[in-house]
Design a protein around this nucleic acid. Structure first.
Lengths: 211, 211, 211, 211
DNA sequence: CATGAATGAGGTTTCATTCAT
DNA sequence: AATGAATGAAACCTCATTCAT
């Protein structure tokens, strides 16, 4: 019997406990990234980790909890990585460029994690059949992007536009940059990111004021 | 035994044969749009169509072939719809706007089809676990968008940019417009499309030349 | 896909359908009577019937439905058997004696059925853990016995007593007669039944009026 | 390693050893009474006791031994309680009444214990699937009741009847009194017991000699 | 003396597919 | 051309038990 999860931010459980959970989460990420969500059975995840199937059930309440832990961890990693790199920048334009290029860097260094995140986001469903995450789950991300866009509009850097549509399109373009890179090995991710940043810089530019 | 499928574009089989296949494809679309790819078992599709499970196996080589037929049909519908509306326009800018708004109109009128298309695109896998359609499958779409963008660059309407990145981002933004609309009932799809067209018009604009 | 059960009294399904269901129910009865409820897995029931596990899932919504069908059938058999033999008797005393001896006869001829019924009654639980049947489920039986007892009190054959306590005790004594017989092969069930009838005849007798 | 259990009546092991075993037995009783035998996993029993699962394995050879210890303890409690109250009574009729009412009192005061006892009696099986306790296990109880009945027949208080059938029916009626009370909160257990005593007093009465 | 960790068997259920009719 | 019936694999989950520490 594993002690019930303490949903606090604080790490819980013994050292071994945490190590096993991390190992299982890592294995899940690799299997999902490699074989897709639908093929990522507990059996495969366990086999990939070199452990017995029961171990997963021992450390996680069920498959859903494991998936949610994967999402939580990967999402937190991305957010930390990107926010660190955005610190210090003042202008909305710089923030915008930095966000896109930082995400791209993180993707290049954590390809499997990001892929697994996307798979789970798209596929995990609640018992009633409705998506567990969905576009709705990106609300937090939308809002943080809207902060940048609104900041640019207020400072006069950006023209007036619907910040929600811009945020949704921004998110989509970044996500697909990743998907495109994954399926086109050899594609220059950093160049793509720079081009994408250019696109949104132009798209948001106040009339007659290109930098 | 059913005669093997002729993979030509030409309709094959008797009238009844074609009608049954169409009925099954329509049922599959509705079930997938409603319950998601993972919950769209042949049993559910058959039940929804009011027929026996065996009929599907009789008319399609397997589940995968059914899914591919759904994709083919829906994809062809979208292409026809959008191309019809683009005809007659000359300027790249007009073509760009029209493409985006026409897709949005089609989405509004064929919500289930588009949703099912997305589900299959994202979820269907080959036996070895790799995606059946990945971003790679959008190659045809990318190229047709690139035609527009290159046309604009040659006519001087558009600035110089990487047309592939622009096409990928364009596709992504349109896809997510749909996803956002699906999960946010009441969202104004047409307004979103107009804003999105504005975004790409600005993003592509030759310097100092806003219309 | 099996057509959903029509909960009407009318038999539903094709001939083969009904035959398979009957076969599976019979197999379940034998396995439960032989190995006990806890050991009566679907695998064992299927093996005993010489069919695949999946067949059971095909014909019954789940294990619980199978168990309930067993109860329904066995219970109806007993009721029919006993009521047939009680018909024509007028005096409460005769009805009482007949009920007990008829049940005993039925038990002797349908040992497995009765045993399985008891096992399911005692063990089957709802998803929330509460008993599916329980003493509460015997309410119908209690009330029919109370009719006899009240009839005897009104006719003056029986003394005054709490008919509910008498019915509960009666039910218990009959059930345990069966259980005792099951565990003591060679025990004379009919003699036991006659003795038991004597006990309740004496227990109910109006003072000073033994027949 | 724990020293093997000494199956003597004498308490064995250190103080801590005995305390732990008692604690575990008590927890098992509560869980079984609450959730039923089938849902009383070692995990749940351990959790309810606030200890680790391993402790149970340490102190008991296995689940079966734990169950048997529960039976032994509860059974001994009941016997002691009832026998104490029967002491001093001489007439068979008084002994009969006292036995029934004393058992009822004990039930009211030790509801969980009695419920757990019944669950285990009915459900525990030997590895080969046969019941560990069946009606056969009540032999001791039957014989002690038979002593009373034979005593009454010899003293002339009781009519002639088959003492085994009477004892079996008596046991059944008392057991079901408990089951009925458990499922009908608010039912008057003491009144039920008095009625039940009346029933057996009448059932055993020598003709023409009601007290 | 106690624990946390791990195991692997076995449970029910869902599913795509095959086949005789 | 269609159906109902059957299959067996694979999924997730629970559990009693074992073992190193």
């Amino acid at each position: 019997m594993r002690p019930e999860n303490k949903p606090t931010g604080q790490e819980s459980g013994s050292f071994i406990e945490r190590a096993r959970r991390a190992q299982i989460i890592a294995s899940a990420i690799e299997v999902i990234a490699d074989q897709g969500f639908a093929n990522a059975s507990l059996a495969r995840i366990a086999k990939h980790a070199g452990i017995s199937k029961g171990v997963i059930s021992y450390h996680f309440a069920g498959k859903d909890e494991l998936m949610e832990q994967v999402v939580d961890q990967v999402y937190a990693d991305i957010a930390r990585y990107v926010l660190e790199r955005m610190e210090g920048h003042k202008s909305a334009t710089a923030l915008l460029r930095t966000q896109i290029t930082a995400v791209a860097q993180h993707m290049r260094e954590h390809r499997s994690q990001v892929k697994a995140l996307g798979e789970i986001f798209y596929n995990l469903r609640l018992p009633d059949g409705t998506p567990r995450y969905g576009v709705a789950a990106s609300e937090e991300l939308f809002q943080s992007l809207e902060l940048i866009y609104r900041h640019g509009q207020e400072s006069g850097e950006f023209r007036l536009f619907d910040v929600r549509v811009m945020a949704v399109s921004h998110t989509a373009a970044v996500d697909n940059m990743f998907a495109y890179w994954v399926t086109h090995p050899g594609h220059d991710l950093d160049a793509h990111a720079r081009e994408l940043a250019d696109i949104f810089v132009h798209a948001t530019r106040a009339e007659g004021a290109l930098p």
